[in-house]
Amino acid sequence: MMIDRRILTHFDFLLLLIVFPIVAMSFFLINEASQSMSIKQSIYIATGFILFWIIFFIPFRKLEKSISVFYWLCILLLLAVDIYGTTKLGAQRWIVIPGTGLSFQPSEPVKVAIILMLANIIYHNPPPREGYHLKDFLKISFYIILPTLLILKQPDLGTALVVLLMGFSVLFLIGVNYKIWIFILIVILVASPLIYGSLHDYQRKRINDFISEKPSYHVRQSVITIGSGGIFGKSKEDSTQTQLKFLPIATSDFIFAYYVERFGFVGAMILVGLYILLILHIFSYCFIDSKDYRLRVVASAISILIFFYMGVNIAMTIGLAPVVGIPLPIFSYGGSSFITFMVLFAILENLLAFRFNFEYNSNPFKNINKKGPLAQLVRALGS
């Protein structure tokens, strides 16, 4: 099937060029740690890239009703976790795909659903010059708060906070009246003791470990691992913190510490630099067209997600944030988060490449007035 060449001119190849080295370094570490895990990760990576090209050709700008259906389907999956969900590491967050042995977290596709839903709503009801007022703000906030509460119930405080912050950060960038933000800030400050008291015991323990003078065992081992990497890192045989299993959850939550032990401070700066470049590159698309709210919402949401995930995960490994189950985006072991980001990248690429309503095998001159001067010029050029 032929594709209009103009689509390729608007395809963001730089996005994939930034993503590839991050994925490659991740696979190298996972394969070094466990060959069995690397086999599963290769399946996740292949699935992610296949879905990327499939989803890239879905006309998201024309699927308004389907987006609503997808959103509510994700809500049903979150509800199904209570009935069919499996428990790992003390939390019931996963649903096993029958006959495959593979599992996924419904909290991952719901991020995609929220972003698409916000993009759809804001496109049809753009903010006035002074920003959204209370009525519109509450309507839009409902689609953020509902899945947040369901994720929090699993319990998954880290993901719930990321979803909440992502959604309201997008609204902040799109435009909400400043009086609403002041009111929300006051409510949070007043209700903070009640919020803390409603947390689970292990969640309060993580906060207490964070503010105490002596960090938890996980964080201590992570800091030791990072420090042992030095400037240029160590060989596999000399990476004793990881190889001797002193570093817990080395390929997922604390993979950054594992990476720094292998590649040192220089390697850490390269990885962080790639993430910063990726975030700024995606965020730059928010300024292409101020009226293209679909593109603005999706670009800002993806860049915010990567920023929160990267920032919290790295801060967690060096003791600057509480330990929460937030992976390093497209780097930590696991399929749910990786595939979610590949889907989001595909949606972004679709909105970029097809923002001028290009069609496959389209004739770029089919809508020209046959008697107009431009049509005469086209015929003259053709002859």
Rank of each mutant, 00 (worst) to 15 (best):
L185T: 15
K291I: 00
F28Q: 13
N363A: 08
I282V: 15
I97H: 01
S337Y: 07
F287N: 03
L165C: 13
L164W: 14
L150Q: 08
H124P: 07
L173M: 11
I195P: 04
L344P: 01
E261W: 05
I318S: 09
H281I: 01
R355S: 13
N125F: 12
L17C: 12
F168A: 04
I3Q: 12
Y360L: 15
T340R: 08
T159I: 01
F358G: 02
K62P: 02
I122R: 09
D201I: 10
G325Y: 10
L185N: 11
F358K: 06
A250L: 02
G273S: 07
V112Q: 09
L29E: 14
V96F: 00
M166R: 00
I347N: 05
R379I: 03
L381S: 10
L14A: 09
P128E: 14
G273V: 03
H218P: 01
I184T: 10
T86R: 14
V324Q: 07
W181D: 11
I122L: 11
F283Q: 06
K371R: 10
S222T: 10
K205W: 04
S212N: 13
R262A: 08
I279S: 01
I207E: 01
L278H: 03
G229E: 12
L138N: 01
A91T: 15
I318V: 15
T317Q: 09
Y178M: 12
S212M: 04
V176S: 08
I18C: 07
K65M: 05
D4H: 14
L165E: 06
Q92S: 09
L17R: 07
L78T: 09
I45N: 05
L271N: 08
G319C: 02
I174E: 15
V298S: 02
R355P: 01
V96K: 12
L63M: 15
P147G: 08
R355L: 03
D289K: 02
Y84L: 15
V190W: 06
